[in-house]
């Protein structure tokens, strides 16, 4: 696998768009639905996951030659848990309020299937650089997905964006948006939107084969 620029870009964009963890693979739904009540929470959760993803995939890839098949999952989990712990400390150091807002979901990054999935499916079979690029793409895709939910939920649920009030004092907050059902509703709406986008693209590309398309 060469690391020529277009291919690297391709590798990166796979996670951002084509295989987007949130909207295409629908993975890691627990943090997606739980912490996206505001844009800043979504962004920091995404950033934390991105960091853990890139670092652990790099280390998994480095260790792939000395990792026997039988103990590989144990090795991956230890590596992932290490970086999660580091992120946990880092967030406490940056802002305790943020740490409280994200709650247990920082620690739960350990069991985020995106990370273990990347480590098993990609990083353990590639050299560190492509592995990290691929992981970064996934991480960025995850962050964008969280942000897409977080922005909608914060704008409607609190009338602000990144804490900046948008509508003035008379704004009617949509209480549901900061409650768990709001996460499901917004996610559903986004999935509907992306399905519609996909449909439109397919239809434009080949209007003949429309009948047999997958849903």
């Amino acid at each position: 696998m060469s690391t020529a620029a277009p291919q690297t870009w391709d590798e990166f964009m796979e996670g951002v768009w084509r295989q987007n963890p949130v909207f295409v693979m629908v993975l890691g739904m627990c943090p997606t639905l739980a912490v996206t009540v505001s844009a800043i929470n979504a962004l920091s959760m995404g950033a934390a996951t991105l960091f853990v993803l890139v670092c652990s995939c790099g280390l998994v890839s480095l260790m792939r030659a000395v990792t026997p098949k039988e103990v590989r999952i144990a090795v991956y989990i230890v590596i992932i848990a290490t970086f999660v712990t580091a992120v946990d400390y880092a967030i406490q150091a940056i802002s305790l309020a943020l740490y409280d807002a994200l709650g247990a979901f920082i620690q739960l990054i350990v069991v985020n299937c995106i990370i273990l999935g990347r480590a098993e499916a990609h990083a353990s079979k590639n050299t560190p650089l492509p592995a990290m690029i691929n992981a970064a793409g996934m991480g960025v895709g995850f962050t964008l997905g969280l942000l897409a939910l977080g922005v909608v939920r914060e704008v409607l649920g609190a009338g602000s964006l990144f804490g900046v009030a948008l509508f003035g004092a008379g704004f009617q907050p949509w209480v549901i948006m900061v409650l768990p059902p709001g996460g499901f509703f917004v996610l559903g709406a986004w999935l509907l939107f992306f399905a519609w986008l996909e449909r439109r693209k397919l239809r434009r590309a080949a209007s003949l084969t429309e009948a047999g398309q997958h849903v």
Partner: peptide, 10 residues
């Protein structure tokens, strides 16, 4: 159900 959860007062 959506508006009931979103705008409980109204």
């Amino acid at each position: 159900a959506f508006v009931q959860a979103a705008f409980p007062t109204a």
